[in-house]
Amino acid sequence: MIVAFGFLASMSLGCALGVVLSRNVIHSALFMSGSFLGIAGFFVMLNAPALAAFQVLIYVGAVTVVILFGIMFTQRPSVSSFRTIIQRQHMPGLVVAAGLAVFLSYIVSVQEWGGQTEPGQGPQETATFGENLLGVGGPEIFGLLFQVSAVLLMVSIVAAVVISRRKTDEGG
């Protein structure tokens, strides 16, 4: 358990640092998928294997491919040194991010989480997870949230098509 936790934590956090510090944008995208795989491993450790499958399918599969397409369309061959990829205000950014990390870690460490905090309190079966998501077994608000997110997905995909469409003269 501890070995798996250490491996997954180093994998996800190391790949996240790789996303930020890599000078090649393609390498950043591949590091990002590695980081998502580490998070999927955490989901398996947290008794949510169906969610881990969603994570691998949507993030490691779809989002990474979409971002690679975006990179293919928008990148010019350019010199890549740290001077050109990093903003001028990188020291204030580092200070803000380090402060955020220390603050959040301190808060979640000193907070006394009520009740007995033991793993395995969530739904163990995929069927329970699906019923919760559809608002059948668990809180009924999830039925509404599920449909709202479905409408939002459709609207956003139509918006993406409209925004990125190549404009022709007669609106074709």
Partner: peptide
Amino acid sequence: ALMFAIGAWGALIRRNAVV
């Protein structure tokens, strides 16, 4: 929390919009 902070760091300092 550390992952959130690393992401915030990258969103603050990187120049490429895709990154």
